[in-house]
Amino acid sequence: MPVRVLIVDDSATMRGLIAATLCRDPAISVVGEAADPLEARQAIKTLDPDVVTLDVEMPNMNGLEFLARIMRLRPTRVIMVSTMTERGASTTIKALEIGAFDCVAKPSAKDPRSFDELPAKIKAIAASPINRQEPLRQESHRQESHRQELHRQELHRQDPTSAGAARREPQTASSRYSPDGRLVAIGSSTGGVEALLTILSQFPENCPPTIVTQHMPPVFTASFAARLDRLCKPHVAEAVDGAPILPGRVYLAPGGAAHLEVVKHVGGYRCRLTNTEAVNGHRPSVDVLFNSVAQSAGRNALGVILTGMGRDGAQGLLAMRKIGAETIGQDEASSLVYGMPKAAFEIGGVGKQLTLQRIAAHILTSTNQ
């Protein structure tokens, strides 16, 4: 059976463009269109689509508010279709945390072919189970835990002998972490926003230097990095060419702009951004990152491949493992799309498979030995 898709967008032109893109694939059937959330709500009930494409900004109801209602009342596979603006990107990142499966940017002069991957994304998502694990409550819990930690640190600064400061939390991998000099390289794609937030929110302030390539449209990674920086204890930012790679820092590859590599430098490592051709259809590519880490850091690194469609990162993770680095793959049960981790596992690139919830603790324990 073809994948049944409902298109939700207030622009008739954009609905037509999305429909034309999808109808070229015989494995996809556009079963309906809606111009606003009120029409969309009824269409979802009537048509029961496999996947919904949802505009971020619409009349009558904010796209985020509508998405939250969908996920609460009738969990659905949703792809956000967003403008390539700072506001659109920020809203899309929040939508991915709420429960949207993926995002695509609306075509623009800078990225006229942004819909090229849409059919493949829809088919991959349609094959994925709807197991979003209450993302809204998880997000609320993350923010509350972060606020409590900041409050505890402030109490300690004001009065190190106070009861609040003296109270000790259970000894976790995070609380007893001490860097050993190794760096961490992470690659992810579809489902990666939630996966990365789950992992990085467990990292301590002095986390191992961490380099991340997440498949994401241009502009979106800046908003994602800012979001991570607000919610996590380490400092998170887009990578800058030549930046030293330091403990307590997380470096995110700029979306669609360049490949992110790690190069040796006196006394450590630095980021390098290169504008070479796309690899595996992606720029930035996870394979490019992992291969550079294998060459520059060798055994002094740990590689992690997370949820995502396709094979990007599989060969690079294998190169890391062959040179002696520890490698981890997200398991099928906790992956939104078990494509990239599966490809790496099948060729022998994954040394250990773990659930998403266990990966952060394992990274901290491993790099603390």
Rank of each mutant, 00 (worst) to 15 (best):
L73Y: 11
D180M: 01
L136A: 14
Q143C: 07
D111I: 00
H265N: 05
V8I: 14
A361D: 15
S145E: 15
D331Q: 14
G267K: 06
C207W: 02
G242K: 05
I98N: 00
H259T: 05
R249D: 00
R152Q: 14
A344H: 09
M1A: 15
P129G: 05
A126G: 08
A124R: 03
R142F: 04
I7C: 11
T172A: 02
E205A: 13
V236Y: 06
A126R: 06
P170R: 01
A226D: 14
H259I: 04
A301P: 02
A185N: 03
P107K: 02
E238W: 03
V263F: 02
K264Q: 08
V350D: 14
V184K: 03
T213I: 07
Q214L: 04
R182D: 09
P218S: 10
L22T: 05
G313R: 12
R41Q: 12
L356H: 09
H156I: 01
P129K: 08
I18T: 05
V30I: 12
I211Y: 01
Y338F: 15
A237T: 00
A165F: 01
L228S: 00
R72T: 15
L47Q: 07
P284D: 11
L273M: 03
V184C: 03
E194P: 00
R182L: 08
R249K: 11
L273K: 02
R142M: 03
V52Q: 01
D287S: 07
R321S: 15
Q353E: 15
V250A: 09
V3A: 14
C271R: 08
A126T: 05
A343V: 07
A361W: 05
T190W: 03
Q143I: 10
G316N: 06
C271Q: 10
G303K: 13
G187P: 07
V8W: 09
I130T: 13
P112S: 00
P179R: 05
M84R: 06
I130Y: 10
P234D: 06
H151G: 03
H362E: 15
S201R: 04
Q353T: 11
I70V: 15
I79R: 08
G308V: 13
A20M: 05
R4I: 03
K123E: 06
I347A: 13
L318R: 15
E169A: 14
E332Y: 10
K94D: 13
L317S: 07
G192R: 09
F203E: 04
Y338M: 09
C103E: 07
A301C: 03
L155F: 07
L183I: 15
E277S: 12
